[in-house]
Design a protein around this nucleic acid. Sequence first.
DNA 1: ACTTTCATGGAAGATATGTTCCATATTTGG
DNA 2: CCAAATATGGAACATATCTTCCATGAAAGT
Lengths: 277, 277
Amino acid sequence: MDATSAPATIEELLDRILALSDGLPKRLKQCADYVTANPDRVAVSTVAEMAEAAGVQPSAFMRFCQVLGFSGYSQMQRLFRNAYTQHWPDYATRLEKLRQSSGGSSSALLAEFIEAGRLSLENLAKTIDPQTFDAAIRTLSRAKMVHIAGMRRAFSVASYLAYAFEKMGVPCMLHDSVGNLDSRRAIRKDDAVIAITFTPYSSETVELAEAGRRAGAGVVAITDSLAGPLRPVTPLLLTVQEADFGNFRSLSATLSLSMALAVAVGMAVKKRRNGIS
Amino acid sequence: MDATSAPATIEELLDRILALSDGLPKRLKQCADYVTANPDRVAVSTVAEMAEAAGVQPSAFMRFCQVLGFSGYSQMQRLFRNAYTQHWPDYATRLEKLRQSSGGSSSALLAEFIEAGRLSLENLAKTIDPQTFDAAIRTLSRAKMVHIAGMRRAFSVASYLAYAFEKMGVPCMLHDSVGNLDSRRAIRKDDAVIAITFTPYSSETVELAEAGRRAGAGVVAITDSLAGPLRPVTPLLLTVQEADFGNFRSLSATLSLSMALAVAVGMAVKKRRNGIS
DNA sequence: ACTTTCATGGAAGATATGTTCCATATTTGG
DNA sequence: CCAAATATGGAACATATCTTCCATGAAAGT
């Protein structure tokens, strides 16, 4: 018989999962992963639901509970049900609560940023022009190499794009100013440049885009205004209006756009390769 | 027969309770009062428990549910459970479908990413624990220097944090692997580390957080699981579940959280300085 | 290659929970 | 004060859910 007794708190439970999870059989590991990633669902789900979500049989999930020291799923669930009260089911109400939470203004701040993000996303869905988006994808997917430029706040977007392109197998180069190297010369005729900049526009980014244009490369811009400094450089302007909150722009919309762009380009590149070969 | 159909949302339900409650028999009114006062309990309690808490018999509570238009307690409970359980759509298969439908319009792809972002934000609002958030802010604002660690996809978050801290006048250092320098030694006792990593966790980030802990620095983690490798390192875990879309995490929630964190810390630091001076 | 041990999936059995029914109590209207 | 209508409590019934068991399949060690 297992001498280990049941965990008394969720922390204990998570500690125990962490301690055991390396030496666990495949299916039980699946359970462990799912529970640690979605601990909140335990309170409101049946074993059958949990098992399905974790991709195992109910009986496997039962074994998982027992390995942890519980008599069964019910006992484990009791732990989560008792600790449940904090989370409030409805988004609107919950947000309202965050905003008003008297414990300090920090939660209210978070609520504002969340709302700003949501507004930005909604706005993006409404304002994006599918034709420009498609054209941008075509341009980027034809390029031998994609150069990515973004400074300051746009740098996080640029670095994400680099990550995503890399993951999708699209050759790319992230231009940063480490060591103050001037890498403009690296852009060639059959490359493409993707420039990201917002007011106040960063001159380095604009210059890189211009260099790309001079070299005959395709240029795609992600920016916040149709009339910005990138307008003369390229017609492929993807504009994103982000809701800002006290000088901090949400970036949610910009990042979603970037992800979609990266994935679409990656898919197009793959299709092109298969088509040619 | 009651022509009224079951409420479809929790708001509707509460509205209906409010509308009916004046003309309700004594026991049913007790039920109404208890439910409006503790709506969160419905998702995790049995009828018997609810009835006892409301001071009535289970059968009375059943009648209450039926007066509201539900077939019984289960149906009403389903409302609360569904509202709580975030059912992320199955993005993996959706992406596959998009890929296969050769016409696969890129706008549809973008729409999916926007939707993923929106869901992530809503989920963040529902699951964030204000107390942990506040504690994280306190820890970071007391630090002489904030060290930021994040690799791969988390790097864009890290770089944004660095930008925001910089802008708020908080001394910070972004740890990247440029030149493969080992910068762990730079962490001192009265510093703090903010480590960002998601499954599959990056060992460099975890190591940096551990180094911080050993040095006696405060450690704050932004991650996706309560039981990840950062759990043994610090209790200050800010967990964010992002909707995945074909292996691409939305990051909207993570970034909103990061912005709020940066601004709150910046404000706290300024207050501290003014208080001391 | 064989045996032993362990993990797995499915289905059958046990239990808890939801639901209904009806006799009794309470209220309402004459 | 009486009769009709309605509300109430408790127990019986039905169902969903948990839990266990065992035959099968996979892995590890000899």
